[in-house]
Amino acid sequence: MLLEFDADQRLWRETVRDAVGKQCPAALVRGIAEGTGDADAGDRLWRSYLEAGWTELTDPENAVELAIVLEELGRATDPTPFLATLSQYAPLAGERFDPAKAGTAIYEGVSANWSRQGWELDGTSKFVLDGDRAEQLAVVTPAGVFLVGSEGGSGATGDRPREAVVARRRDVFDPVLHIAEVTFDRVRVEESDRLDLDPSAALALVERSRHVALMGMAITMVGACQRILDLALEHAKSRHQFGVPIGSFQAIQHKATDMYVAIERARALSYFSALTIAADDPRRRIAAAMAKASAGECQTLVFQHGLQTFGAMGFTWENDLQFALKRAKAGELLLGGAAEHRALIAEEFDATRI
């Protein structure tokens, strides 16, 4: 298992970084956040990802290449539903994934009940990433995984299943992140909308899919933290106090070094998680937890040091630092924080000692 990028992967990273830098500049993100930019800018950005074929990175063997894209999108504070579609919906949908449509996963809060008319989905799931704008939903229930709005399903009679789902976007501190509360009120779906898997296979699919979701969230946070460090270093070089750049002060240098080390650690664990997914390595469960825990710890330190490096300027709306700070913090709060995943790692370690 190689822990360094090969030539093709390095070229892929450069290509993606160049494309994201041109198509998703800070001005675009700010325009969406303030509601002053082009109303269709986000949709055009999403379509550019479709045209580039990035939404076709669904094969587990392409996990590292997908991670490269997600890191760059995290660095740019991407406003599209790419993260939820590729790291949450696609692993569950499998061959029924439509790369031309945005999707997301609902992991909890919904139950499936059988009636004479077929299956009915009931329940509410809170804090669903892109739940308000996803065209396809992968709903995890005790009775199996249902694909709502996918091409593969025949759909229910009356209202189309996706249109019968009520999704309300919630106000969150990241102004370009879509978080929704999704409610199913006896939404009827067909047997063909349920993945044809026995219970053990369904559980295995959900577990593997969650590993991809954790890896995707972790590497997105790494990208956001890298953006914070980049901005902090730029500021430290240009901001002068007492006639010299503040970057010449030892206190600032220590903060920058600590941020760099934390980011490199989280990045290494995130890509190791992607490697275990690509190789179908049984260590992928613990690797995904390690990646998410490390990314959470990283954002805590980088958030604090990055903000302090900017001083009072870091608290202003005019500073683009805020977007990276908020994306990194949001990633920590989604799919379980560092403490939760550290506890899982401890349980795994204790189990090996018995």
Score class of each variant (00 low, 15 high):
192 S>P: 04
298 C>L: 07
262 A>P: 02
110 V>R: 05
309 T>S: 07
351 A>L: 11
235 H>C: 04
175 P>Y: 15
136 Q>T: 01
292 K>F: 12
221 M>V: 03
249 F>G: 00
301 L>A: 07
118 G>F: 14
272 F>S: 01
223 G>F: 15
72 E>C: 04
126 K>N: 07
23 Q>V: 00
15 T>S: 13
176 V>I: 13
327 R>I: 03
166 V>R: 08
303 F>V: 01
154 S>F: 05
191 E>F: 11
238 S>A: 13
231 L>V: 00
62 N>Y: 06
92 L>I: 09
341 H>M: 09
285 R>K: 08
144 G>P: 04
318 E>K: 10
279 A>D: 04
244 V>F: 15
92 L>N: 07
184 F>R: 05
88 Q>K: 11
218 A>R: 09
49 Y>N: 02
99 P>I: 05
343 A>L: 08
53 G>C: 13
151 E>A: 14
91 P>Q: 13
79 P>K: 06
79 P>R: 11
76 A>H: 11
204 A>I: 02
137 L>W: 15
4 E>Q: 14
234 E>K: 12
342 R>M: 09
331 G>A: 08
275 L>R: 12
134 A>N: 11
243 G>V: 05
240 H>S: 06
118 G>K: 12
227 R>K: 12
72 E>K: 08
336 G>Q: 14
249 F>N: 05
338 A>Y: 03
2 L>F: 11
234 E>W: 06
307 L>D: 02
50 L>K: 12
